[in-house]
Design a protein around this nucleic acid. Sequence first.
RNA 1: GCGAGAGUGGCGGAACUGGUAGACGCACUAGACUUAGAAUCUAGCCCGCUCGUCGGAUGGGGGUUCGAGUCCCCCCUCUCGCACCA
Length: 843
Amino acid sequence: MEPRYDPRTVEERWQARWAERRVHAASADPSRRKFYCLEMFPYPSGRIHMGHVRNYTIGDVVARQRRMRGFNVLHPIGWDAFGLPAENAAIERGIHPAVWTRDNIEYMRGQLRRMGFSYDWSRELATCHPRYYRWEQEFFLAMLDRGLAYRRTSVVNWCARCQTVLANEQVEDGRCWRCESVVGKRELEQWFLRITAYADELLAGCDTLVGWPEKVLTMQRNWIGKSVGTDLTFPLADREGGVTVFTTRPDTVFGATFVSVAVEHPLVAVLSAGTPEEGAVAEFVRRVRAQSSTERAEGKDGIFVGSYCRNPFTGARLPIYAASFVLMGYGAGAVMAVPCHDQRDFEFARAHAVPMRVVVQPEDTPLLDPGRMEAAYVGPGRLVGSGQFDGLPSEEAKQRITAAAEAGGFGKATTQYRLRDWGVSRQRYWGAPIPVVYCDRCGVVAVCRSDLPIVLPTDVELSGTGGSPLAKLERFVRTTCPQCDGPARRETDTFDTFVESSWYFLRYTSPNDDTRPFDRDALAYWLPVDQYIGGVEHAVLHLLYARFFTMALRDLGYTGAPNSAAALSEPFVNLLTQGMIIKDGAKMSKSKGNTVEPDYLIQRYGADSARLFSIFAAPPERDLDWSDQGIEGASRFLHRLWRIVARGQRWLVDAYGAGAAAEVAGANPTATGDGAEEARALRRLTHRTIARVTEDVERRQHFNTAIAAVMELVNGYAELLQEMPPADPALRAAVAEAVARTLVLLAPFVPHIASELWEGIGGGELDAVPWPAVDERALAEDVVEMVVQVNGKVRARFSVAPDTSEDAVLSQALADERVQAQISGKPIRKTLVVPGRLVSIVV
RNA sequence: GCGAGAGUGGCGGAACUGGUAGACGCACUAGACUUAGAAUCUAGCCCGCUCGUCGGAUGGGGGUUCGAGUCCCCCCUCUCGCACCA
């Protein structure tokens, strides 16, 4: 063994060996316990960044540790390879997206290998490959058959300069993220996936995902936004028809004094026609419709449309307003306004001098008076001024009033969701083609499954303007109708890239099967994912879409286990969302110019140091402050470990390789000899460390404290290795054991150096070594330190044998002169002994 | 505004079930080795003073308890998410 640690030679050697022997390849084996460890796959942007290093190191620690625990571990990697940056590169630098993507994947694959991640490379996939996306096209056709995919017009963000649709996240402060021109709205025919059909299951599932962070579940629940309420129809005054509103507070209907409708509501034009307000209303509608959603949110504008409706319960004439804050896309696009019991209505009523009626009185507080209220009362109470419903508590009133409306034919109980169906059409080139054609005679026609995949053509011109490049490619567009054989045009939109990432974790179980999307046996064996790890930025979209796909594919019959009733509904059992990397007080990013290049770290310090730092600096879910000194410290620890082990190598080989087990057994608590006590102390430390690291890695997932524990262990025996082997055989064995356990415990974190040193001390192949077990006997304490508190303050300490009786401990505490000084003759009011910890005395 | 999380030395962070606050690491200081430096090793390193097994200290204030970083109440600050969702 070299006296000096050279990360590069060590890491290259082990990486070559892992690749050559395929030690991390997994295959389904029903006789073994499985563990599916997955990190969110990367977008091949060109280079891995520190966020990847952290994410994938966390995953690799888990995967390697579970392997040592005897699990059959699936730890795959792949590429989320479709997306806009590839197209931008093509436009800016003239490189074809396919070439750009392929080159990036090749480079990044090398980087991941140089980090020593234990992936099963035989399962690597890239979503831009037809072998992958053909199945996605098939799923879409199946969804189309079941009505889970459909087409409708919708309003989209449109950049006139770029001639393209923008996703919401590509609109920054109302401007295009690329050309900074103001983003407009446009109506387009788009494909949608009916995720709303699963709203209830997605919501209910949140309660079963006990292995997910509460924060993520809360975000998902809010996003789904289930809201139980009532649709009520207010008849129009002076004409036929009515305006339907959605409310969660039917109990307050007697207090409604006006109705507000969205400016997009079809009734606005009808109701204002022929009234003196007509011109002003049209102007108002024009103004509000031109506003961005943020502008709308800031103003709380409204205008009387010139007509009235009637409260269906009281018959009162209520003015109808068009208001900027009412959303056409939610509920009925109209709301009944109850100023006394809704804060927004309260403010609006004050501003427009609309009357106010109190219809819910809180219990045990002074009666509400509309003229003196400073804010709406939104809490529960008993109904007043509500006719036959007076006196009812508000919850019961909701039921009764809804029932009355249903009986009267002007209302019904309904449930609203904030969740919208998922628009998956993108007017983009670098994505999976949507497999439908448009026939003049037959309309929208699905492509035959036998014609799949619809391959994305590569011979395209990418200019960056003028809409989808595919639309200009006649060879692609012109086709025949699968139904009538007449001329037809292909769909030229491609799928949102979130579609690919919604099922890749399923495909990893049989990535090379070209006859079917999934091998059902493999899927049944490996799924669900036991540990999923990724950035919290995907808390809603990706994770919700992936859950939806899992449910939909189940119902389409793709994932049901053969001969098993156990259907896969939730893909990820445990979720770990890691924090961001922070440098100089800001998120590490290219645009901030505060990045650290993983390549530089690997070259300068080695992959193990980079891994160690990213694990040690903070617990995984927290943000990690980058520190140049921090990685130095990680590197220093590994150099030190190497020196310590190298120094004792010769005798460690003898002690461990020859008959370590027997000798360690000889170092049990009953051993005698000059070094026996020291040996027992070291064994206690060794086994306490094993227990701590096991707990930290498996249950708490606080890898930073696991590393701290190992460092303490090394500090605990470093001095003993300064000189040549300890004379005492028990101590010698204990040191050998401590060193050996150190290397095994470090193996998941810094696998290269751990493997090299392990081989150096004669341990053989570290990959075959199981996770160490705790020797309970070694944990037994010779003495425990007790502290003595007098009136809550620590006043003395002393050591006793762990089995000392409480009485004996107490009298020893009382005998202590410092304790006596504190008591100073005052009567003792109370004493308390916590065995093994402390004595508390109150005077 | 609503929801979630966080606030502990010069810094990153420990303290898991209420029981010795500051593990581990970084930075810093002194010493050893060295012609010198780097590296390494040893020691010190929350604040204060009358230097003691002294007093104070976990954002601020109150409470429960023999005992509170940890539990309860009020307040402040920061981060993230949602943001007129009827």
